[in-house]
Simulated scan of single mutants.
Amino acid sequence: MTNPVIAKQKPLNFHFPKYFWAVLAGSLVLIALSSIASLAYGSRSVGLQEIMDGLFHPEVHSYGADVVRKRVSRTVFSLFCGAALGVSGALMQSVTRNPIADPSILGVNTGASLFVVCGIAFLHISTASQYIWLALAGAAITAAFVFGIGSLGRSGATPIKLVLAGAATSAALSSLVLAILIPRSNVMDQFRFWQVGSVGSGSWSAVSTFAPFLIVGLFLAIISGPALNALALGDDVATSLGVRTGFLRVIAALGAVLLCGASTALAGPIGFIGLLATHVMRLILGPDLRFVIPMSALAGAIILTFSDVAGRLLGSPGELEVGVITAFIGAPLLILLAMKSKVRSL
């Protein structure tokens, strides 16, 4: 079956990167460890036997086993959100050819936040299924706007122009969010916990709402991978290889918006996961997006879940929202990448 984003391109040679199998095995082990830690630690820590009872012995109704059962949905939700944000970052970096692109840096999260706040304030929405469509619309419109502004001028969409356009757009939208919230204390109370970014509200309802968007977004990302490799060589080279560059950007951007918008709607604007996950995998596996995209999903899931556990431990007996932890880790990395790469194009 022909890849829908490629017209005449011949099949690319498929060689696994060096260390791929070791990285895959290590990632799966870290997924398991992060999941166990997420089940074990919180306001009340539980032991291995209580975890086993909670997972495999439904007849046991001890306090620890019941706590584990309640944490399972949060753990699954955290893994899903991390995977979505990791892949969204990889797609945005590839489509914009910007090595520091990320949903939070390009203002996409803020656009989703603005639409959610408008829905809460003016439409009185309150459920995840209502949040998600507004967040997707906000993310899509903001992504198109930032790319359009960043593409103006003779040189087109350069990395530095996209970052500046994203920062300016994010600042403007944040001001609008505050303008809506300040005179409405009831909306502020509903919005303030969501705004920081947290997976604490992860329930089976949120997981089931999120799953279809995750599946569709991952599918679009995976089918776009081979053509995005060609796009990294430049539009002219990609076109000569048979890649339909305009259609490719639309498909890949749609996948990124679905993943980012859905996770933002349900967990709030969690930043830097896409930046962290994608750069780790590029550093280890190289630039081939056929491998970077799926492995960024695993890396994002690991980073977000461990960050959630760290927030619970550092904030005990309460918790620090995961958005605070990822910002604390990701902001220095962003500065380092900007200084080291001088914001070169991919």
Rank of each mutant, 00 (worst) to 15 (best):
V76G: 05
L162Q: 03
S203A: 10
L266G: 11
L258N: 10
V146C: 03
G82N: 13
H15E: 13
L164C: 07
I303A: 05
Q49G: 09
K18H: 11
G225L: 02
I100N: 07
I132H: 12
N186R: 09
F193S: 10
A262G: 14
G261C: 13
S151K: 00
G138D: 08
L266N: 09
A84H: 04
A25E: 01
W194S: 08
A101E: 05
A206W: 07
A167C: 08
A299E: 14
V46I: 13
I329E: 09
L12A: 07
S185P: 03
S341V: 01
F56S: 01
L241S: 02
D66R: 07
S43K: 12
V207H: 11
V46H: 09
V72E: 07
V322Y: 04
K342W: 06
G148E: 02
Q195G: 00
G148D: 06
G86E: 15
V309R: 04
A265D: 03
G217D: 13
T127M: 13
A230N: 11
S129W: 06
G300L: 15
W133I: 12
G54S: 09
L275G: 05
P212L: 04
G86M: 14
R282Q: 15
T264W: 06
L176P: 01
M52L: 08
L233A: 13
L134R: 09
P58I: 02
A168E: 15
L258A: 10
R69Y: 10
V257Y: 04
L276E: 07
G268A: 01
A90P: 14
Q190R: 05
G311L: 08
N109P: 11
L181M: 03
K342Y: 12
F328V: 00
G54F: 12
F20E: 01
G138I: 05
K8T: 02
S316I: 15
L176Y: 03
V257P: 04
K10V: 03
Q49A: 14
L346Q: 13
P269L: 00
Y63L: 15
A143F: 10
P11M: 00
I303Y: 02
G315K: 07
